[in-house]
């Protein structure tokens, strides 16, 4: 009886300790995540404006959502965000990350003792703050004094300087180049770490079985890298979809609204057009899209692939 009683008491004490230990976490979650989310949701049903912050907004129901979803401009913003920024941006990053990881892990670099230098060079873009990277790239791409235009012109590739950040043909590729340059190292390093954990015996067995280099990649390396790829796709998608700083500082969502994405639309509506309620509704839609994507991705792709990996 005493044992049971003392057992219960220990369990109760542990539970109490756990609850107390979790209080700070819940406190911060409530203050900095739940409250702003609920406040934003509430704001999205009002007409709160920049000029009406002191008096607050009036309840407008789902008007903001209806206006957003009926707008042709918003459909283009979604297209820019989903296709250009996210699908193209993330695909380029994952593909280049894989290629670079294979290159940096190759025996050739090891033989020439260039691995360490290559890894240091790889980290430089990652260590560069985005704002600095953007300023440098804007300068490089500048039509008047930019090094890239100067090189292209001196080589006779172009007659006139190219306004990379202002011409329809070039603006998205230029933007994705800048984002990729700054964010590629993390992807590459993650893949490299995964590659280095590949058991040598597996490769040896494949070689003995007569597998070509491509077959080794297809049947040994890629299945081993799959968990890392799944996690990086998920993380990169979230970062990229929600990213504001690159698009805003590189193109200001222009020329026109050609590179306007959801994050810049939230900013433009709130701080240029002064429509906080409308902007909050855009933010809620943005969060909803990402939540749906995350759930589907985890259910359909990650769970299946990772369970296959475990079996």
């Amino acid at each position: 009886m005493t044992t049971v009683a003392s057992g219960r008491s220990i369990w109760t004490d542990q539970r109490r300790f756990l609850l107390v230990a979790l209080v700070p976490t819940f406190f911060f979650l409530a203050c900095f995540y739940i409250y702003p989310t609920v406040f934003n949701l509430e704001t999205s049903f009002t007409d709160l404006s920049l000029f009406g912050l002191r008096k607050g907004g009036e309840w407008v129901g789902i008007d903001n959502y209806v206006e957003i979803l009926a707008s042709g401009d918003f459909r283009r913003v979604v297209w820019n965000t989903v296709i250009w920024l996210t699908v193209v941006g993330v695909s380029v990053r994952i593909a280049l990350g894989l290629a670079l990881a294979f290159l940096l892990n190759s025996p050739v670099l090891k033989r020439w003792r260039l691995q360490t230098l290559a890894r240091i060079l790889l980290i430089v873009p990652w260590a560069t703050p985005p704002v600095v990277a953007i300023v440098v790239w804007r300068w490089l791409l500048d039509p008047r004094v930019g090094a890239i235009n100067a090189t292209l012109m001196s080589l006779g590739i172009v007659d006139q300087p190219v306004a990379f950040l202002a011409e329809r043909l070039w603006v998205w590729p230029a933007l994705i180049t800048i984002i990729t340059w700054n964010t590629l190292p993390l992807v590459t390093l993650t893949f490299m770490a995964s590659l280095q954990s590949l058991p040598e015996e597996l490769l040896e067995a494949a070689r003995i079985d007569g597998a070509s280099r491509w077959q080794q990649i297809r049947y040994v390396y890629l299945p081993h890298l799959k968990p890392a790829i799944i996690v990086m796709v998920l993380m990169s998608t979230f970062w990229t979809f929600n990213n504001f700083v690159y698009v805003w500082l590189v193109t200001g969502a222009g020329p026109g609204l050609y590179t306007n994405v959801m994050a810049t639309e939230v900013y433009i509506q709130a701080f240029i057009n002064g429509r906080f309620g409308f902007s909050a509704a855009t933010g809620i839609i943005m969060a909803t899209i990402m939540t749906i994507f995350g759930l589907i991705y985890l259910r359909v792709v990650a769970e299946r692939e990772l369970s296959e990996e475990q079996t």
């Binding site: 039509p143 008047r144 990379f164 011409e167 200001g252």
Partner: peptide, 9 residues
């Protein structure tokens, strides 16, 4: 006014 003028505002 060259197209490069579209890169500053």
């Amino acid at each position: 006014n060259p197209k490069s003028s579209m890169s500053f505002c």
